[in-house]
Every structure is written in structure tokens, then in C-alpha cells.
Design a binder for these strands. Sequence first.
DNA 1: CCATCTTTGTGCACACGTTCACAAACGCAT
DNA 2: ATGCGTTTGTGAACGTGTGCACAAAGATGG
Lengths: 274, 274
Amino acid sequence: MRRTPVGRQTRARGIPEATVARLPLYLRALTALSERSVPTVSSEELAAAAGVNSAKLRKDFSYLGSYGTRGVGYDVEYLVYQISRELGLTQDWPVVIVGIGNLGHALANYGGFASRGFRVAALLDADPTVVGSSAAGLPVRHMDELEAIVESQHVSIGVITTPPGAAQQVCDRLVEAGVTSILNFAPTVLTVPDGVDVRKVDLSIELQILAFHEQRKAGEEPDQGRSAEESVLDRAPGPVRAAAAKLRRAAGAAKDAKAEKAESDSDRPAVMPA
Amino acid sequence: MRRTPVGRQTRARGIPEATVARLPLYLRALTALSERSVPTVSSEELAAAAGVNSAKLRKDFSYLGSYGTRGVGYDVEYLVYQISRELGLTQDWPVVIVGIGNLGHALANYGGFASRGFRVAALLDADPTVVGSSAAGLPVRHMDELEAIVESQHVSIGVITTPPGAAQQVCDRLVEAGVTSILNFAPTVLTVPDGVDVRKVDLSIELQILAFHEQRKAGEEPDQGRSAEESVLDRAPGPVRAAAAKLRRAAGAAKDAKAEKAESDSDRPAVMPA
DNA sequence: CCATCTTTGTGCACACGTTCACAAACGCAT
DNA sequence: ATGCGTTTGTGAACGTGTGCACAAAGATGG
């Protein structure tokens, strides 16, 4: 009696990615309820606690099976277990953290890991001045030990918190050693072989998205930004644009764009990213 | 000549959210090219550098306007500027970080902020033992100064790196003081009034998603997990389930689920989240 | 000026995700 | 047992995102 694809969905076991991404949210809300010894919860209540729509929550749960009771709601403890199992949190996941700078330190100390079945198997760094020290009660060990640790402790998840320059190299070593899931905090695009999962967390990207919306909110009135010339050019799909593009290139890229901008936008600070 | 909605899309200026989320990726790849003084780049090359599909990239750019030249590609410097402007990075964004623990420290030192127009206006904490210290060359100031700082420096973006218990309270104060965009690292669902944006970064959620896929990869052979009873019940939509649900509740929630599990799953470690 | 080669910009079809709205299922009281 | 109020589970409509594939636009060489 195998739990093989049932044909309902194309993908095996077919839980949508969007649903998987929300399961941890539900789990957190549920464990909070569990700690308060709440026996059952309705989709409406739980959805509110998790910050989502109740219909979405019910549909999400429907992919896992029918764990609710109509007219009553969901059994909190039972649901906690089902979601934990679905996410694979009923087993122990040893994790290595590579790159023990500020962020690596923070992650090593982060309580949310241990409480959800993730165990920090080792902290690794290449810098000899860091290797002796300890963080969160664990010694920082040298990169040379990576392969041995991954193998002996059966580590399948690696966290990269190195500077961007070292990330790909560290990634390669992790994969080579047998790690098949990587959480990347370095602002780099990692390339990995098939079968290896990479998720990235980029702190500055989130801020940039916020800035976009913030600008949208604030920038409805002032005519800041584009000069008259540009506001015409930007959207003009005609042959006019071709000439402009030619001009831009002909004038010698780098300096041109910035200089051109300094003229038209001199009314507000032009903080260009490095 | 205002840059008002052109009617093409429902939303004003209509840049899809998915596109906005990718713009920082493109920007990073482009700045790297810019530093190497590469004058132009094709959608294919840039897409590879950013780790996306080239058609998607071209469609993304098409929302910003027609900045490419057919047969040639995109002018790197010009595109850097256009994306920066679209994201609002051509202006200065003062940011406050609240909660200077490990993570707050890491963020204060994070280079990716300053290089993209984000300026740390202040570090704040409620703990008197932390308030005196300094991080990344900035003094840690007391929460009491929050309102004054936000107002005097025109801070519109706040970063919350407090323990979960304090997050909502801090959030309320930030919003009250005038902050309209919040980046939340605390594992809590924040409720804010309309007009305020919240984005959350949850370190443990990403790991849980990885664990899910990892389990999927590893768990194709062993019949671990569900007991025979459950593998029938989980998917059974019939009237059988009703009786089972009744049993679960009747037997007294909490202990039951775990005990039931301890029997059937005793073959592998059952690390339940707290 | 024409032919050819390259690369963009986008129409179109499809996949995925979200939301609505309601029938079926359940508990409970009578 | 029957009826009533509640809540789940899901079909169906809709919106958003993705990727193909190709015409149009420009560069380049003769």
C-alpha cells in the first residue's frame, strides 16, 4: 500500500507550491493554539491567525486530506501533527551553516530552527581568526571539515551565509559532499545540478520592493523623476526611439547616462547604487 | 504631461507584482556588468546572469518601456538607471531598525543596504543594557526616541527584528509615528491599517519548505510515515472519516494525537515542534 | 539600396493561484 | 428522528504569471 500518485494531479502527490509555502504559517498559528490548549479551531479563526483568506486555507488543507469536521472545525493537535508530517518536520534535519559572520551568528542563535526539528550540526568558516570561536554554544570549525561532517552526520541541508564571492564555491563543495537542499543568503545566483533545491533569502531585495511601493504611494503628485524629453521617449514605440538609442550608444555609455540624468534630475538627490 | 495610467492596465502604471520582485535581480546583474564596463547586453545573457528565462525578462522590461535595441540588446548603464528609478532607488530612503539582537546587528552591518540607496537612520532597542552600545558605527538608541527620529528624519521604512512578542507593539508605534512600509523579521502576523505595506522574511519558513522537498526526494521508497490505518483514513472522504474524527475528539485531543503517533511511528524519531 | 542576420517586443495559449458561493456533512436540541 | 444552525470541502469563474513562437525592427555587409 504505497502512497503513490493517485492521478488527481499531474505532479506526484500534487500539493501546489503556493500551498506548501503557507503550511509553515498554519503550523505556527496552530502550535500557538495548541499551547493555549485550544481543542478545535474553525477555518475562519485559523485563517485570521495566519493572516490569510479562509477559503484559501480550506483549499490548502483539502490537498492534505479531509482533516476537518463540518460544523465543528479542525482538531488542533491532529492538524499540527498532519502538517508537521507533511512538511517532514517529524524527522530530524541536521543543518550546516557556512559563513559565520553577523548573519551566520544570528542564524545559529535563531530559536525558530531547533523548535521545528532543525538541528545545527556544525558551524563552518574559512577565516582562521573565526574558526576558534564559538557561537550559540557550538564551536566554529574549519571549512576543511565540511565533507567529513556532512557525511558522518548525514547532513542534507546547507545554509550559506558567506560573502557573495565565496557562495558558489561553497555551494559546489556542499553539493559535492552530498547536500541536496541549500538556503542561500548571499546575494548571488547559484547554479546547481538537477535534483538540488536552492531557495534564496535576499534582505536587500525585500527592501527594494518596499521602496517601489513606497514611491508609488508618495509619488502621485509631484512631477519628479522623468524630464520632459524622457517622458516622451520612454513610452514612444515609434521610430523616434531608435534614433535616441543610437545616440545613447554613440555617446559612449557609462558617463552619458549619469550625466544626462544629473541635468534633468538635479532637483532631487540621485543616490545611484554602486 | 503627467505619467498617469495609460488605460492599458487596470492598476495605475500596471507593473505586475511578479515583475517588481524580479527587478532587483536584474539590477544586481546589471550593476555587475556595469562594473566590468560591459556596454550592452542581450536578453539572453542578462537572463542567464539573473537566473531567469529570457522571454520573461523581455516581458518584464516591456512593462517599463522599450529600452532595448533590436539586433543589439540593452544598454547596460541606461537600463541600470531606468530600473533604479522605477524601484525608487534614485532617492534616499532613511530606515530605522528596531531590535538590535543578533539579526539587527547583522542587518546594520549589511552592505547591500547602503549600496542601494538605503540609509540606516537609527538603531533602536528597548533593552537598557543594549542601548549604550554601538553597531556598524551607529549608536543604539532607546525606543523612546522612535517618534522623534521618524519625524525629524522623515523615515518611511521600518525594519522589525525584535522578539515575536514585541513585534506588533513596535509595529503600532512605527505606524503611529508615520512609517508606511515595514519589513518584518519577527515570526508574527502583523496587522496594520490600510495604506501600510508589510513584507515579511521568515528564516524558519524557508527551511521548512526545503525540508518538504527534501522529504519528497528521499521518501519515495520507504513506507515510513503513515500507519496502515492512517493511510486509509487520510484520503477517505466517505462516512468512515466522520467516525474517526469523533473518536479523536472524544478521546481528548492533546495526548491522543501524539500517543497514537508514538505507536505507529516509533521506528523513527518524532521531533515535534514546540 | 537590398539582403541577411540578430534580437527585441508581444500575441496567444496554457498553467497556476485565488476567490466565490453553495451543497453536503456534522453537532445538537427537541 | 427530525430540524436547525454551523462549518467544511470543492466546483467553477476569474485573475495572474509563464513560455512559446514569430513578426517587426534594427544592424551590418555588399
